[in-house]
Amino acid sequence: MAGPLLRIRDLHLTMTSFDGAAHVLNGIDLTVQRGEIWGLVGESGCGKSLTGLSISRLVPTPPARYIRGEIRFEGRDLLQLPMREVQTLRGKRIGMIFQDPTTNLNPAYRIGEQLVDVALAAASHDASVLDCPADASRREKRRAARRLAGDMLDRVGIPNAKARLDNYPHEFSGGMRQRVLIAMALIGRPDLLIADEPTTALDVSVQAQILKLLKGTVADHDIGIILITHNLGVVAETCSHVAVMYAGNIVESGPVEEVIERPAHPYTQALMAAIPTKQSKRGTLKGLGGSVPNLVSPPPGCRFAPRCPLAVAECTQALPSAVEVGTAHHAACIRVTGTEVASDV
């Protein structure tokens, strides 16, 4: 296949705030191929959701401003496309799922109708979404969309799917609603799915089902997924690749086993160390000292330096660029060189 599905290069985004411009995305590089599930992890406010929203161009400008960089979806730079064009990609080529299934469905409409609306919107750009001829009447299209909606609900594992099309969102449990939202995101047959904390609001058993469902979707339809989460466990279980974000930068990225087994960046190492294991004693939760830096006046050089246990004077000189530390495994830290992992030598 020609070129990656999605390639984000050197993406810089600032947000106007009362204190001045905050540099919330500071040179994001990310490449997603079909068949890959990328986990985007990091603390709250590190810019992972903004990266996801930027791909759909859902970040309001102003207050946001794209300083430089590009977001190429199948080669076309979404930042240069007119909004009208971007609109034709949403739902149809790029699907999105958000965190809270209780607030992301419209309470006033039956879920069947909401699914049908998304299907019809997608079909208006690509008639093949619906299983009916392009010149079919509105009523035929609606009927086809409804059939498709039923199939989609069935596919995401909602029992008795056809009958449940006529239910309202409040008649579903949280997990079921998230399935409905996944069905809604997939009904236009997108090639890229952005899932922004899709399981954070769900309990653990439901979470596992939803993740399995996402994984199955990639296998069945050969799409790419960006899974935004703050849970490394979710990443380890679901993703093929992971990108670790800190204060608007991707500090480490690579195949998931590589990164988890041999974390190269001190921040990733700290994140891994913070996960409690069976061996850890009660009451000994490990955290990372300090807090996320102020993005209006970020620390010079590496933004992690003030909290980094390995920081040296050079760290504050310049933003470190990503170094290859393994097969497709990169880390942005001056303490790592070649295949060496950052450590206190």
Binding site: S56, L58, Q87, R90, G91, T103, N104, L105, A122, M184
Partner: peptide, 26 residues
């Protein structure tokens, strides 16, 4: 500003439909 409006936008519903149908009723 509700989440479901963002979702509707993210899934490509036309702006007119979002406002006249999804927003207006609520």
């Amino acid at each position: 500003n509700q989440d479901y409006v963002t979702t509707a936008r993210a899934l490509g519903l036309p702006r007119g439909k979002i406002i006249l149908k999804y927003v207006a009723r609520n």
